[in-house]
Write a protein that binds this DNA or RNA. Structure first.
Lengths: 211, 211
DNA sequence: TCCATAAGTGCAACCGTTTCAGTTTCTGCT
DNA sequence: AGCAGAAACTGAAACGGTTGCACTTATGGA
């Protein structure tokens, strides 16, 4: 692998950290190449390590699992969620802040063609779909706590936990629908107003008559 | 393993099926024993197959994965959910039917001490907790379709999909809380009426003032 | 300059899971 | 009753993700 000779991003970041980052990037790149070329299951971690010119031991020192090679952004997502709630404008509710965040950050998956290929890969690969779903749910604890704190409630307040989990279901719920934006809007309307207001097909979900 | 010589449960069920069921049961029993004795990760499938006196090949012919050894009831859950919605009394809404089902079938986990041990095991084992969560979500497709059909909506109606997924989050949400019954009730109230009605700590979740 | 330590190596092992080429056991049919 | 064929089961071997271990190398701070 090659180390760029551009000037260091900042004086405090030494050669060591740069090399480490480069190694990590080399592994991620090799993985993406092989995944897109042969599919997720077809590419073995030994192959990936080989192409990145590292040992498999090193590979697993940087990524906790094969699936994790695809998703580099776990921590950032957590941070963004927290920020979206904490730093929302005055006079904006928590739910509104989450809706805004969902619309701004989750809806535009596309544009970059390479990234588009990747989402296609994830959709086609059950192991990756599952991993992605779990990935979202892993943030439920953090988000729930932030919401509770922001509203001055008990850390394990049920309404907050439930809200967090339900909001984090949205990416999954959105997947495969033609109009993600409308989907997000609809789900938030449901969350805010509840299922009692469903009257559109002549029979309310919460009404009494059988279909 | 030994085959009971009691009279066949019904004339149509042959020796073959009985033996198959017996084998399956022997495997499940061996697994439960070893899991409770040594923990989930400590018991290898080879050990389990050994104790059940079958080959590992046979073990995997009966169970699709090691985790599945713990959960025998996948299909029944699906059937019960469907029945709960389809065969609800007249003048009961879908959401009410689901609430009733949750209260009747999901809340009483305990009583049997062996079963209690098992839930403890699941709680302690991340792999099993994750598997259990996914197990619930696997029913989302079925439930969603049943709800939609029952209400005469499109099969992929968003409100139905969302309702299904949110309801199936409830077992996870309930876990580890002192009063499961109250938890279920609260979550259903939130689902029915939405988060707009949250005014209890001086600040509505959907209100405007920051914490 | 020297040393503690982080990063990386290579190999062997473990474990879940699958494949394969059989053998045994049952069932339905004649 | 007798047979063909399917289904259950076997044993061993392999594969692929993951980890442990003993070791070398590179780096940064004292």
């Amino acid at each position: 692998m090659e180390y760029s000779d551009a000037m260091p991003d900042s004086p405090t970041v030494g050669r060591r950290e740069r090399k480490k980052a480069a190694t990590r990037q080399a592994i991620a790149d090799a993985a993406l190449d092989l995944f897109l070329e042969h599919g997720f299951e077809q590419a073995s971690v030994r192959d990936i390590a080989e192409r990145a010119d590292v040992s498999t031991t090193t590979l697993f020192a940087h990524f906790p699992s094969k699936e994790a090679l695809v998703f580099d952004r776990e921590e950032e997502v957590d941070a963004e969620l927290t920020a979206a709630v904490r730093e929302r404008p005055e006079n904006q509710s928590v739910v509104e802040a989450l809706r805004a965040h969902a619309l701004k950050s989750w809806v535009p998956i596309a544009s970059d063609p390479r990234l588009h290929q990747l989402t296609a890969l994830v959709d086609q690969t059950p192991a990756l779909r599952e991993y992605a779903e779990r990935m979202w749910m892993r943030h439920a604890g953090t988000l729930s706590a932030v919401i509770a704190e922001e509203l001055g409630r008990e850390a394990d307040d049920l309404a907050c936990s439930a809200l967090a989990r339900f909001v984090l279901e949205i990416p999954t719920l959105t997947k495969g629908r033609h109009d993600p934006r409308a989907t997000v809007e609809t789900v938030f309307d449901l969350l805010i107003h509840g299922w009692q207001s469903q009257h559109d097909s002549g029979d309310a979900i919460t009404g009494s008559c059988k279909g």
